[in-house]
């Protein structure tokens, strides 16, 4: 009896000691030396894993931050859109570097082809997927550039920041937007753009992406940019460019003077969150359906601290309009 017990204790104990010794050496041999700062940086990141920075997740971004911080001793080109300047400042202090403050961005829907402005000419039935409808036909209103209203952007958003307005049939961005860019990717028609939030959330942009000539554009939508060029002429800062019958306001050059807004014959230029002047007549833009949030004006924008936006936001390269796939096999 005793012998059995002693044997059992001895053998199990022996195995335990042997295993611990092996484990100790294995742990020594295969030890991965990791920069403790990576953990520290990751801690300070929002842990949203949205991919808005361009990396697979917050961990990957933290590694990239530490690596670039070591290699180049700067953090240029790396930005966490979710956390914004606060987080980047914390990261910089962990890596004992300086970081330039970035102007925070927000997603902007550049289409105002609501049910009222671009009445339905046909009715779509089928998969609720913009990507599919984009390849099927030009759109219920007839505009082959405008919003399809099936909500791929809404589905792509992890932050509950973009929703369809059932009245207009257009998506609306609210102040939860962190500019991760998921909706920009999701939109098959490249309607959504990341633009600087602007001082006090004030923004001016062309709410149209139609590249057709004025006639056909206006035929399908009352508020289309017709490429008349009036805004280009009136802009004192050369911020507006005209390409393919479409005006584009460069958010960096634009000083928010609002001269272009009343000039636009189709009310395609929108201004947001500007106070309503008391003396003047009611400006055009106020009567327009707001496709952007109006709530956020109440909140202090972090952009107020910024005097001038310093770095250009990465402008989306113009993707050529994708040809619909017509590769159906012959069946008749």
């Amino acid at each position: 009896m005793n012998d059995v017990m002693i044997f059992a204790i001895a053998s199990l104990g022996g195995i335990g000691i042997a295993a611990s010794v092996i484990l100790y050496f294995v742990a020594q041999k295969f030890k991965v030396v990791e920069d403790p700062r990576i953990d520290e940086v990751e801690e300070s990141l929002p842990a949203a894993n949205c991919g808005g920075c361009g990396y697979a997740g917050c961990r990957a971004f933290a590694e990239a931050l530490v690596k670039q911080g070591d290699d180049k001793s700067n953090l240029d080109g790396l930005n966490c859109p979710v956390g914004g300047n606060d987080v980047m400042a914390t990261v910089a202090s962990i890596l004992s570097l300086e970081v330039e403050e970035q102007d925070p961005l927000i997603a902007v829907v550049r289409c105002n082809g609501s049910h009222a402005n671009s009445p339905k000419k046909v009715m779509y039935e089928g998969a609720t997927s913009c990507a599919f409808a984009h390849n099927l036909f030009s759109g219920e209103g007839g505009c082959s550039f405008g919003c399809l209203g099936l909500g791929d952007c809404v589905k792509s958003c992890d932050f509950d920041a973009i929703h369809m307005n059932s009245e207009t049939g257009l998506p609306e961005v609210n102040d939860k937007c962190v500019a991760c860019g998921a909706c920009v990717e999701a939109c098959p028609r490249d309607i959504i753009e990341l633009r600087p939030k602007g001082k006090k959330d004030r923004r001016i942009f062309v709410s149209c992406v139609n590249k057709e000539k004025g006639g056909p554009a206006k035929k399908n939508c009352d508020v289309a940019c017709i490429g008349c060029g009036k805004c280009v002429k009136v802009c004192p800062f050369d911020a507006i460019t005209m390409e393919n019958n479409l005006a584009y306001i460069d958010p960096i050059k634009c000083r928010l003077c609002r001269k272009c807004v009343p000039e636009c014959p189709t009310e395609a230029i929108h201004e947001l969150n500007f106070p309503i002047p008391k003396v003047k007549k009611e400006p055009v833009a106020v009567s327009q359906p707001k496709v952007q949030d109006v709530k956020s004006i109440k909140e202090e924008s972090p952009a107020e601290a910024v005097k001038e936006p310093k770095s250009a936001p990465a402008e989306k390269p113009e993707k050529p309009q994708e040809k619909p796939e017509d590769k159906t096999n012959e069946t008749n």
């Binding site: 009715m123 779509y124 099927l136």
Partner: peptide
């Protein structure tokens, strides 16, 4: 007349 319907085949 009603609006024409558009859908995939």
């Amino acid at each position: 007349m009603n609006l024409l319907k558009v859908s995939g085949s």
